[in-house]
């Protein structure tokens, strides 16, 4: 831009920043999306396991029924905190609430930048880059190399037991963590009651509901939580899983 006007130059280079980050943000996220889908598709197509499209659709529907609300809600919730450029980083690097947001806040505090300003946005973006580098290196080294080696030397009977009980060991902790951080006792009670009724009363009576049971619980809980909400005060915004 061939202008001597400082204001115009300033907005010019910010516009260029926005253009660069959104173009590259979309391109890199799109590439990661395709690469991450390519892995299971490769397995389905090249291995002779007898997997049918019907099995994949059934599994996908069960998962989608449980999570589709969050696909849209999480990006909308995080946008005001992250800003457009960092959105493309955050939903690719993952672990937003437990790693990226704290990193961004620490960086803003370090240089005394306020969230919501351009200084704050740039500081958060650099912090997320720093967090991404640390994360990528520690995943490649500690999980990719050391972890793979560790698993290969652990006795198989321990591995078998670990494999069998890892999911219950995750889900108990995740549920408690969610309930404590959300502080929504009313929603919690509704969810637990609905889950017990659906899993131990409805599903035994109507076995066809076994596969979409979690989706059914999510739907009924959401509807009940909405109609039974306490109308006095507005609840605090939600902390999310990713």
């Amino acid at each position: 831009m061939a202008t001597a006007d400082t204001a115009a130059t300033t907005s010019g280079s910010l516009a260029e920043f926005d253009r660069t980050t959104s173009r590259w943000g979309q391109a890199t996220m799109g590439a990661a999306l395709l690469l991450s889908l390519a892995a299971p598709i490769y397995l389905v197509l090249t291995t002779d396991l007898g997997i049918t499209a019907g099995m994949i659709w059934t599994a996908y529907l069960a998962v989608a029924a449980a999570f589709f609300v969050l696909w849209f809600v999480e990006p909308i919730t995080y946008y005001p905190v992250l800003g457009p450029a960092a959105m493309y980083q955050a939903f690719m690097i993952g672990n937003i609430a437990n790693k990226l947001l704290p990193s961004a806040l620490v960086a803003q505090a370090t240089i005394g930048a306020k969230a919501g300003t351009k200084r704050g946005e740039f500081s958060a973006l650099m912090a997320i880059c720093g967090a991404a580098m640390v994360h990528v290196l520690s995943m490649i080294f500690f999980v990719g190399i050391l972890g793979t080696w560790l698993v290969s030397i652990i006795p198989t009977d321990i591995v078998d037991v670990a494999r069998l009980y890892i999911f219950p060991s995750i889900i108990g902790a995740v549920l408690v963590q969610l309930i404590v951080t959300m502080r929504q006792p009313r929603v919690t009670v509704i969810a637990v009651v609905v889950a017990v009724l659906v899993l131990f009363v409805l599903v035994p009576a109507v076995p066809a509901l076994a596969k979409p049971a979690t989706g059914v619980v999510v739907l009924i809980t959401a509807v009940l939580a909405w109609f039974l909400r306490s109308r006095g005060k507005t609840a605090a915004p939600t902390t999310l899983v990713n």
């Binding site: 449980a66 969050l70 809600v73 549920l175 929504q184 929603v187 939580a225």
Partner: peptide, 8 residues
């Protein structure tokens, strides 16, 4: 409410 309900 809805996200919290969906998650929990």
């Amino acid at each position: 409410i809805v996200p919290a309900a969906a998650l929990i």
